[in-house]
């Protein structure tokens, strides 16, 4: 059983952490779009790949069919992105791919190598929330909180593109996210507060 668990842990990336020190730098140099194997099919067996998440590199070994969301949640323990619909309709799994919000349930991990992935864990710290996170807290823009990371990601992308969006633009930016508790009015209020404060930088 012990052997089993340790193998599992490896596969899940329980031990996977930012590749440290010089090794990481070497990996960084090697990891560019050009470095990816051209035209050579991989899989269906698990394949090693490196993901850049929140500024760190993680090596995982996954089958081609494994989604980015699955890797983030179940192998990197980055559980802020949630699996709610698993079909690109609810936005709870939203992460930023090179700064743009995308549904991580509809991205294969294979597809996003070399790209910059930002998850909710990459935004703010307990003592230093981002302006959007702070506004969510101040406006009570959450109830059960399950959809909250997704909304924060969508609005983070909005504010990085535009510091003073209108209410309509805020609603449009949130149109790919669902909240079953119905916290929308307070989410809009939080976003408007950020827009008015002019402190949208994350």
């Amino acid at each position: 059983m012990e052997e089993e668990i340790s193998r599992r842990n490896f596969l899940r990336g329980v031990g996977a952490s930012a590749v440290a020190g010089a090794l990481a730098k070497a990996a960084a140099a090697a990891q560019s779009v050009e470095s990816l194997d051209d035209q050579k099919p991989v899989g269906p067996e698990p394949e090693k790949l490196v993901l850049r998440v929140n500024g760190s590199k993680y090596e995982v070994e996954v089958e081609p069919r494994v989604t980015l969301l699955d890797v983030l949640r179940n192998r990197l323990q980055l559980t802020g992105a949630k699996e709610v619909c698993d079909r690109a309709t609810c936005g709870a799994c939203t992460v930023l791919l090179n700064g743009q919000p995308v549904y991580s349930c509809m991205k294969l991990a294979m597809e996003v190598q070399t790209q910059e992935i930002t998850t909710i864990e990459g935004l703010g710290t307990p003592n230093n929330l981002t302006p959007i996170q702070r506004a969510f807290v101040e406006c009570d823009a959450m109830m059960c909180g399950y959809c909250t990371p997704g909304f924060v990601m969508s609005l983070t992308a909005l504010f990085s593109a535009k510091s003073n969006p209108t209410v309509e633009e805020i609603k449009k930016a949130c149109s790919g996210n669902l909240c079953r508790c119905g916290t929308y009015p307070h989410i809009f209020k939080a976003a408007q507060r950020v827009a008015e404060s002019g402190q949208s930088t994350t």
Binding site: D38, Q39, P41, V42, G43, P44, E63, P64, R65, M110
Partner: peptide, 14 residues
């Protein structure tokens, strides 16, 4: 989802 081979094309011909 069933498993599959994944390949990255670099050109239309490819």
């Amino acid at each position: 989802m069933k498993n599959f081979e994944y390949a990255r094309a670099r050109s239309v011909d490819g």
